[in-house]
């Protein structure tokens, strides 16, 4: 059951007063456009001065089956921040006993996240120019985050993700040869994760806050996990996040080579291009299954939304992209 404005107004101020030791009063509270797996609120408050916060809750959210839960999402975000990744500061974590379900409160950062604005508006020209370097610095920080306090995050290597996604795909009951072809190849070529790292899990255009000066925050940690750091680089290059700029694989802004060079500079680690391309194919497969998930949430009567129905026909885009990815992988490495 989703929480209401009244519930937030009832429980949050006293909770914050107890934890922060200062008087807190909410002056504004509105639900932001709901994401697929979080119930997100914009709050304004008087709490040792005027504050603008974001509240992310599990309550009412859909679960794609890969999320670690809001508690661990917040812990990962805090740990990545300490390692140097630009993220919002977490103010407090809710464990569910406070009346609002599991979630966390964080500062609201400034910036724009909408891809069309970031890709087209001239005022973001400098931010676009800096994007590759900024993204690489953020990724390097995430991937060097110490894991001592994050061992309870799920370990999701390629094999684990592939099994989970293929089971979802099979459950929909459609015989789609391209999905089966990609699955068979990905299964045969799944890389071993020698040294697991913290992985953001949804590092793509749409989940970045950019100011005119550059990257100001990495958002949406709901799919964070332990795994192969190359996954984040591959997911960033999935065609769906280029927003029509097919010739610029890195979020519609830059080339793969520019990203690899920037990441190597920032992390001191060599990029394995075949591995990144593997994850790009797996990411495209994942996006295809997510499109199916959304369509079937409509077809099975869970979410009666015309938008959900329409996204089912975007599966064709992912089928085309999977075949192109496979072809490029073969050209790259004479795979098979």
């Amino acid at each position: 059951m989703a929480v209401t404005t009244e519930q937030i107004q009832k429980y949050l101020p006293s909770l914050l007063e107890a934890r922060l030791g200062v008087s807190c009063g909410l002056t504004g509270c509105r639900r932001l456009t709901a994401g697929a797996s979080a119930d997100t609120w914009w709050l304004e408050a008087e709490c040792a001065g005027p504050q603008q916060w974001i509240l992310r809750l599990d309550a009412g959210a859909e679960d794609l089956g890969m999320a670690p839960g809001k508690h661990w999402e917040a812990r990962a975000q805090q740990a990545a921040s300490r390692a140097g990744c630009p993220v919002a500061s977490v103010i407090t974590i809710l464990d569910g006993s406070e009346g609002l379900g599991e979630g966390y409160l964080m500062e609201a950062l400034s910036g724009e996240s909408l891809p069309p604005a970031l890709l087209r508006e001239s005022r973001y020209a400098l931010a676009r120019e800096r994007f590759c370097a900024d993204a690489a610095v953020a990724l390097a920080a995430i991937h060097r985050t110490p894991l001592d306090d994050l061992q309870q995050l799920p370990m999701l290597d390629a094999t684990a993700q592939l099994s989970q996604l293929y089971a979802m795909h099979k459950d929909y009951g459609e015989s789609l040869p391209v999905f089966s072809l990609a699955y068979g190849w990905l299964k045969d070529h799944a890389p071993q994760t020698a040294t697991p790292a913290l992985v953001h899990g949804d590092f793509r255009l749409g989940n970045f806050l950019l100011t005119e000066q550059g990257l100001n925050g990495v958002l949406d940690w709901e799919l964070t996990h332990l795994g192969d750091p190359m996954e984040d680089l591959g997911w960033l290059c999935v065609n769906a996040w280029r927003f029509g700029r097919r010739d610029k694989p890195v979020g519609g802004m830059a080339s793969r080579e520019a990203l690899y060079a920037a990441y190597e500079r920032a992390s001191g680690q060599q990029v394995d291009e075949t591995r990144v391309r593997y994850w790009e194919l797996l990411g495209t497969f994942k996006w295809g299954v997510i499109c199916q998930y959304q369509a079937y949430s409509f077809l099975r009567g869970h979410v009666p939304s015309l938008e959900r129905a329409a996204i089912g026909r975007r599966v064709a885009e992912t089928e085309y992209d999977m075949l192109v990815c496979l072809q490029e992988l073969m050209e790259l490495n004479h795979a098979d």
Binding site: G184, W185, D188, A316, Y320, L323, M330
Partner: peptide, 29 residues
């Protein structure tokens, strides 16, 4: 066909399969 594809190990048939199915993916788009 889907069962066979999902088994993997398509060896030298894979490039031919992509050549066969990519134009159809374009038709679907």
């Amino acid at each position: 066909l889907c069962e066979r594809f999902a088994e993997g190990n398509l060896g030298k048939s894979l490039p031919i399969i992509i050549e066969i199915w990519l134009p159809l993916a374009k038709e679907k788009l």
